[in-house]
Nucleic acid binder design. Structure first.
Lengths: 196, 196
DNA sequence: TTATTTAACTAACAACCGTTAGTTTTGCGG
DNA sequence: CCGCAAAACTAACGGTTGTTAGTTAAATAA
């Protein structure tokens, strides 16, 4: 009985967001229809509206869910008592981990945030901007400590975030390299460079 | 008169592809309508079909244009008489340059190739795969020469290509950092690492 | 059992999509 | 000036889109 209750208690809305995440990842936001989503849920399209207000809300849940998750982690790292460069390594490994375990949600957020409607679009961009700024401050602190090269902090953040995003290529054939190996290689390249 | 002739001689089809590139970049492939494209061209949607066979062809032109351009450059680099690591640096700088001068086309190709229809989709993926393989071989040669660390070559290629892709973030505010600076910093990070 | 809420259903609307057919305008070669 | 081809136009088709209205079935509470 406990099990049935537990299963039943799972919010139906969360199920919808979950499947929407998968479909948005596969086809993109605009190319995913409510009818197709409903089909995957085993119901009619109109029935979805008993749980959500519209297609917008699905994208919103995905994007802002990721945003708050990222912000929470950033704050945690900012307050850890470790060296500046260790903080940066933690950030890199965190982002890699998200690409491994929450791949579809991260992918959709990175790709489809443009389809958010105002005022949420502005809100999202604002959050993104301040996230990058705080990340850049971590880099600046490492530079001040003499632990990393005096590159432009924003250039470093940009390079890190986009390199990590490239794990989407790995997902396309994960057979060649193990997840652990790609993480180590990527961290090594970003922190110590390709050249030996 | 020469000028008028020259302007008139510009293929109308190329104009359409150019504007389509801009719109696809802004809104995405599916969210860009032929009517909106026509409006930007100063004509009716139906008139577009005097110059192109359909919406598909526009995406096709963009994606395969970039693909052949990339392949041509790769072949050139493969045949240059320089050290393996110098070849890799050339590849990195080339991709950065493309992100600077052909940003929208590169962006659309990276983002919207999924909407290509078979058999072109398969063809495109095939080209992409062999491109990455040849790039990885360049990395392997540099490893064999002892010029770079023994990372997994595919991991290196993935890190490079996706880091470069991140220049799209830079385009969102190009004011903070100059193009030259971002290129130098990114090359430096990828080849020699963040750590000092 | 009865009343009430939750969540499914059918049917449909208005808008927009890519595209085609058929017609008219435009501009250049003779 | 005439004829012809290129390129614009108008009108419309069939299909899909997100969404709403109204109704019915199922589950829960009293």
């Amino acid at each position: 009985m406990g099990k049935t209750v537990a299963i039943k208690t799972i919010n139906r809305k969360e199920q919808i967001v979950e499947i929407a995440t998968r479909l948005f990842h596969e086809k993109g936001y605009n190319a995913t229809s409510m009818r197709h989503l409903a089909e995957q849920m085993g119901m009619e399209a109109a029935s979805l509206y008993n749980h959500i207000t519209g297609k917008d809300e699905l994208l919103q849940q995905i994007c802002f869910g990721m945003a708050t998750h990222y912000n929470a982690h950033l704050e945690k790292v900012e307050n850890e008592a470790i060296s500046p460069v260790a903080r940066i390594e933690k950030m890199v490994r965190f982002h890699i981990g998200e690409m491994m375990t929450q791949f579809e949600a991260v992918y959709v957020t990175n790709r489809d945030w443009k389809h958010l409607k105002e005022p949420l679009l502005g809100n999202f961009l604002q959050q993104r901007k301040t996230y990058e700024k705080r990340f850049a401050q971590l880099v600046q602190q490492a530079i001040d400590a003499g632990e990393i090269k005096p590159v432009h902090p924003h250039a470093a953040v940009l390079t890190i975030l986009s390199a990590v995003r490239g794990i989407e290529f790995w997902h396309r054939n994960p057979r060649n390299i193990s997840a652990a190996q790609i993480e180590e290689d990527m961290v090594r390249i970003l922190l110590h460079g390709l050249c030996s």
